[in-house]
């Protein structure tokens, strides 16, 4: 079996995860920190395929759902940024046990950049890969609120536009988002310029603000970047994912 579904114990419940182990000796381990809210659902297939493609290059890849998200235990309301960091720490522990004495990489996608960067700062992972990272949580929340407003007014979704009710303010793009998470995201800032550039790789359509000169930048084309702005679900093209995995194996990690 190429992908092993498993549970990871953490305070407050169990996390659901899928471990992609290579058939060859493990070169490095990658903990994949998923994006949040609708982006988690939207990108699930893309990153399942990427994990499988990276497995083909000798990486052990662990995907998991934070507590209160996806198939993990916990209510939607229990999901917080602090909880995401704790969930990531538990996932890193498990990957370390399963992958053996190999370097570990944190791959943070969109808002998942924050728990991944936390592991990097604490020295729990040796390298940090950031995929279309959200640098300022406050701006992100504002964008999502505007987007949710558009959805509530959409004639494609509703025969009559919905008013912005107070109850909807406790959700982000349809997902429950309590005061604690809103507050955490409102204060979340990710500064790339203070990071060790030699161990940082960014994947995006263009270089984000503050990217250190010596870091590795992989430019994503439309087929791999557009999902973050789309809501429609469709089949994911496999070829660009395989090509990106090969590029990551070559440039994003040098043993």
């Amino acid at each position: 079996m190429t992908a092993e579904p498993l549970w990871i114990s953490v305070a407050g419940g169990r996390l659901f995860g899928v471990l992609h182990m290579p058939d060859v000796p493990v070169r490095a381990g990658i903990v994949l920190c998923a994006p949040f809210f609708h982006e988690l659902v939207r990108s699930q297939r893309l990153f399942a395929l990427l994990a499988d493609a990276l497995r083909g290059h000798g990486f052990a890849v662990l995907r998991f759902d934070y507590l209160g998200t996806g198939d993990s235990e916990g209510s939607d309301e229990s999901f917080t940024l602090l909880g995401a960091a704790r969930s990531t720490a538990a996932a890193v522990d498990l990957l370390g046990q399963r992958a053996g004495q190999v370097p570990l990489i944190g791959l943070g996608i969109r808002a998942g950049a924050h728990p991944a960067a936390e592991m990097f700062k604490q020295g729990e992972v040796e390298r940090l890969w950031l995929w279309q990272p959200i640098l300022r949580g406050r701006d992100y929340l504002e964008q999502l609120r505007e987007r949710a407003h558009v959805e509530r007014q959409s004639s494609e979704r509703y025969a009559h536009p919905l008013p912005d009710l107070a109850e909807d303010m406790d959700t982000v793009m349809g997902f429950p988002c309590g005061a604690a998470l809103r507050d955490e995201l409102g204060h979340a800032e990710l500064a790339l310029d203070g990071m060790d550039a030699t161990r940082l790789t960014v994947l995006d359509v263009s270089a984000p603000e503050g990217l250190p000169a010596l870091s590795t930048m992989l430019v994503l084309d439309e087929s791999l970047a557009a999902w973050a702005d789309q809501l429609d679900m469709a089949r994911v093209a496999v070829a660009p994912i395989k090509a990106l995995a090969a590029r990551l194996a070559e440039t994003g990690f040098r043993a």
Binding site: V41, R45, G70, F175, A234
Partner: peptide
């Protein structure tokens, strides 16, 4: 539901 994975739209199946 379509191409949405098993947790369902907005985690509906899990809940």
């Amino acid at each position: 539901a379509g191409f949405i994975h098993r947790s369902g739209p907005f985690r509906l199946h899990v809940r």
